[in-house]
């Protein structure tokens, strides 16, 4: 069961919204699919991003995945602790394993994202189909 207080994208990012600020990470499902995370290529602070645009990337030994922006905005902070210990994404994906914070240009863009229930259903369907 995914945490109720977050919103989710189809690319398996989660978003925690606090006013104009959004914290973004990858879901538990995503970290399991990637395996042991070996490196998180963090975005630069101040970087402008488009909704759905590629922000940064996350790697395991045998896979890599892009992390996209759930909405337009400016990168306010990157989780530099992941530079030293990327495994936090595996052990605490919804907590200390967050990847970056976004200063939203238009918080309403987040309204189209899934809630936990919808995301769980999405996962179910996704797995059933594969």
């Amino acid at each position: 069961m995914s945490p109720k207080d977050l919103r989710y994208t189809e690319q398996h990012e989660w978003v925690r919204v606090e006013g104009n600020a959004a914290t973004v990470g990858i879901t538990d499902h995503a970290q399991q699919a990637l395996g042991d995370i070996t490196f998180v290529e963090l975005p630069d602070t101040g970087q402008q991003v488009e909704a759905g645009g590629e922000v940064c990337a996350i790697e395991s030994a045998k896979a890599a995945s892009s992390i996209y922006a759930p909405a337009a905005g400016k990168v306010a902070e990157a989780n530099s602790a992941l530079e030293d210990d990327p495994s936090t994404v595996n052990t605490d994906p919804y907590g200390d394993g967050w990847v970056y914070k976004l200063e939203l240009s238009d918080p309403s863009q987040l309204e189209t994202l899934m809630d936990a229930e919808a995301y769980d259903a999405f996962l179910e369907k996704d797995q059933g189909g594969s």
Binding site: T38, F39, A57, E59, S60, A61, K62, A63, A64, S66
Partner: peptide, 14 residues
Amino acid sequence: LTLQAREQHIRREK
């Protein structure tokens, strides 16, 4: 072989 996530067989067009 290491840091293979940079490479074409994983990253393809990226």
